[in-house]
Amino acid sequence: MTRLELRDVRKSFGALKVLAGVSLHVEEGEFVSILGPSGAGKSTLFQLLTGAIRGEGEMRFDGAPLDGARFAFMPQRDALMPWRRVIDNTTLGLEVQGMARRAARERVAPLFTEFGLAGFERAWPAELSGGMRQRAALLRTVVQQRDMLLLDEPFGALDALTRAAMQRWLEGMWRSHRWTALLITHDVREAVLLSDRIYVLSARPARVVREVAVPLPRPRTESAALAREAAAIEAGILDTLLGQPTPINDHPMENRND
């Protein structure tokens, strides 16, 4: 069943064309990634989906025009509130939905073990490591029980080792929960490890230049044979990305760790 469907979505800021007709779809229980160079307009796409900005083109959810409150959104940096304890950060979405704080805590508390945060319920975010903060942010996102997750480069600000650990962890979590998810990333390996399908965007103005299915069995980190297949897919995607004409000062695969 198709949940999200975009047809020819366009967006310009004044004379600056950011999205030049993006079409994509996400099925129920599918993990889809949008991969593209920095500044390609990936985040603009998410802002369109969450309703922060308006654009042109058609956005449908479950066949009907997209209305609000379909997505649980996880921003680039963890966006944990330093003045709320970890448990109160994770209940934030439920509280905004109008759930009483106590009930929201009871809903969230049993999930702390699975998210590797047991014992840190009443810690402050400043007391957590980068990976733990990101897991808390993901917990805050998934407990909202929306129809679909929007993950905006969730591991972009982590060091390489923690990022690799978090990617494996997220793959494991996804295997048991089968969230319908749309991930924005510029990390090819991350996209191949996590996704069922990958949309490769061009540099600005963005359009889909390639759609890559990743038919590898999960878990994908177990065998050497799988790693070789994954590497072949990665190489193909990199060729697509680097084959595009890009501005000299704007290397398409640079990491934005700001």
Binding site: Q47, A52, F73, A79, M81, W83, L92, G93, Q144
Partner: peptide
């Protein structure tokens, strides 16, 4: 990012002020 996230959660202007801007 916190403001944007709250808006995506469905929080209004007053809610965002109370939950994020004031603290």
């Amino acid at each position: 990012e916190i403001s944007q996230m709250l808006a995506a959660m469905g929080a209004g202007r007053w809610r965002i002020f109370w939950l994020a801007r004031l603290p």
